[in-house]
Design a protein around this nucleic acid. Structure first.
Lengths: 230, 230
DNA sequence: CGCCTGTCGGCTGTCGACACTTTGACGCTT
DNA sequence: AAGCGTCAAAGTGTCGACAGCCGACAGGCG
């Protein structure tokens, strides 16, 4: 894939306390134990995990860079609370990022990336059958992440990784993603077809259409959700 | 502007030690005392500034989020070293970000933002006359940042802020930006004209052309620079 | 009864200290 | 002479502790 010299050995997984803590924190959010807008007490978290506050702080900074947390001076970290307006902005950003990624990928030849992309669609189908909507969200995002990863521009992937948490938060908050969970898997197919054909313009148009449709559906549903709770 | 009740008092500028430290560190980089690829010893910095390592660490994390520093486990922080490939990727990202921003701005009406944009172009002209190329780079980036800020999508601005340091590093490394410093100011004008006309497609095309031209010139020059030093 | 003020608990921001890792240099072996 | 093992210095990762700040609650005044 990339032309790095020799992947002879994998790096040893160092202890990396902050990263393990960050994973726990993120899991707490996905599991619903920490809800959007809620405060994350670093002292309490440190106490419960049996570590000092320093690595917890480091982990929180990591998750802040990832977009899951936001920090307020002298008040600590809060789980990012997503609004419909935020989600709409994120979708717009995704559209222009991923359209570029798709065009690039189609231009440079997507052969090596196609299997992975197709696999994620297949996974989405299976998870839709199983009715596992949270995992389906993961598969959906994994497809789009793979697209950004394969396009050859590392910065595009970096941007995607920075908004992926916000997407996740929004999508799991909605609950069931679409009225028809199976439809979402199928709407990825035109993108794949355009990539396979090596047509940059078609690939960009396909992803624009795909994300645009999702944007409309998700933001509408989210607005309705906000109307009931707020 | 906003319909908040009473702006009687301005908020007191809290000490915010990390931010002041971050500014010093950033200044050290722009002044050339810390060069790309060089290591930033947080203990030494803390000693020299007369503070503990904790706020220095915090400041470094801030600058890492801003893209100025990168951290390596157990080895601390390093000033980001930009390559021609990196710069090319950043330019590509900028093109799709700013094209979207320009189109949005043209669509929603750019009247309120036009004076600020025009002012930056004027500043570029003046600084080109004065031969102050570092400040001209700042004015150039300020123009593009204002574009992203005015478009109404906060995430676009966030992405721009994350790559602006890499741009700065690359541009100041080149030294003289173009063969003709005056030309760069003028090439911004078509963007402004399209915005004033309220033509989204033209605005996007103008910014694509403008950044694309800069991309080619800068990356070529940077490649030549790399060939001589590496 | 409602608003403001004083107090209190908890928390973050910052600090100095210690252990482990990294790194560069020196000396030894082949 | 080149390479490996050892060692010391420097620096980061982590820890516990203290000061200042924030939010909440109770009490006083209009």
């Amino acid at each position: 894939m990339s032309d790095i010299e020799a992947p002879l050995f994998a790096p040893i997984p160092r202890d990396d306390l902050p990263q393990r803590i960050a994973r726990q924190l993120a899991d707490a959010v996905t599991a619903g134990r920490l809800r959007p807008g809620e405060r994350l007490s670093e002292s309490a978290a440190a106490r419960e995990m049996g570590v000092s506050r320093a690595p917890v702080r480091e982990a929180a900074r990591l998750l802040e860079s990832a977009g899951l947390l936001v920090s307020r001076p002298n008040r600590g970290f809060f789980v990012r609370s997503v609004s419909a307006t935020d989600l709409d902005a994120v979708y717009e950003l995704r559209i222009c990022i991923e359209a570029e990624a798709a065009a690039r990928l189609a231009r440079t030849g997507a052969a090596s990336a196609l299997p992975r992309l197709a696999a994620q669609i297949e996974r989405m189908r299976a998870l839709a059958d199983a009715g596992a909507h949270v995992e389906q969200v993961d598969a959906d995002l994994a497809f789009h992440r793979a697209l950004c990863a394969a396009c050859g521009n590392a910065r595009l992937l970096g941007v995607f990784d920075q908004i992926v948490w916000e997407m996740r938060l929004g999508l799991v908050l909605i609950g069931r993603l679409y009225d028809d969970a199976h439809l979402i898997a199928e709407t990825h197919l035109p993108v794949l077809a355009a990539l396979r054909a090596g047509d940059p313009a078609a690939a960009a148009a396909a992803i624009r259409f795909h994300i645009g449709a999702a944007r409309e559906a998700v933001v509408d549903r989210f607005r309705a959700l906000e109307g009931t709770t707020a």
